[in-house]
C-alpha cells in the first residue's frame, strides 16, 4: 500500500520538473496503454484576499495531463506545468512505475536526483536573497 502523502510528494516533484531535466534522467519506454492521451489545458489559480481570507481568481496557468496503464497493470496519472506532452507522458509513466515493483529503482534514478537538484536550486536562490538582508545599526539614540 502506498501512502497518499508519498505519492503526493513524487507527483509534485515530477509536475514541477523541467521537461529536459526529467527526460535526461529517464528515457526508457515501458509498455503501456494510454488511458488519456496527453492534453494541454489551463487551471485557474486562486489566491486569498489578504493572503488568508476568501478565495478569488488570480489567473490561469498552462498544464498538460495524461493517464496511462502499464502492461503490468499499474495506472499512472500526471498533471504537469506547461505544454510539454512528453513531460506529461513521462510523469504518468513514472507515477505508475513508482506504484509497482520497480519503485526503488525509479526513486534512485529519478526522484532522488530531481529532489536534490530542486533543493540545491531553491537553496542557492534563498542564499542570494539572504545576502540582501538589511542589517540595521543605530547611529544616534534620541534620549540622553
Amino acid at each position: 500500500m502506498i501512502a497518499a502523502e508519498d505519492r503526493k510528494s513524487w507527483m509534485g516533484l515530477l509536475a514541477k520538473a523541467r521537461p529536459a531535466a526529467l527526460a535526461a534522467l529517464w528515457d526508457e519506454a515501458v509498455p503501456h496503454e494510454v488511458l488519456r492521451a496527453p492534453e494541454v489545458g489551463a487551471v485557474m489559480v486562486q489566491g486569498r484576499m489578504g493572503g488568508t481570507g476568501a478565495p478569488f481568481n488570480l489567473g490561469e496557468m498552462t498544464v498538460t495531463r495524461c493517464s496511462l496503464r502499464l502492461a503490468t497493470g499499474e495506472v499512472g496519472h500526471a498533471t504537469v506545468q506547461g505544454r510539454d506532452k512528453d513531460h506529461a507522458r513521462r510523469a504518468a509513466m513514472l507515477d505508475a512505475l513508482l506504484q509497482g515493483p520497480r519503485r526503488a529503482e525509479v526513486r534512485a534514478r529519478v526522484l532522488a536526483p530531481l529532489g536534490a537538484q530542486r533543493a540545491r536550486e531553491a537553496e542557492h536562490r534563498a542564499a542570494k536573497a539572504a545576502a540582501t538582508r538589511v542589517d540595521f545599526f543605530t547611529l544616534v539614540r534620541g534620549e540622553d
Partner: peptide
Amino acid sequence: YRTTLPRFGSSKPLDTGAMACHR
C-alpha cells in the same frame, strides 16, 4: 490563446504564507 485551452479545473487557493521569498 487562452480562450483555446480547455479548463481542467481550479487550484486550491495559494498559500502565500509558505512563499519562498526572494524579496
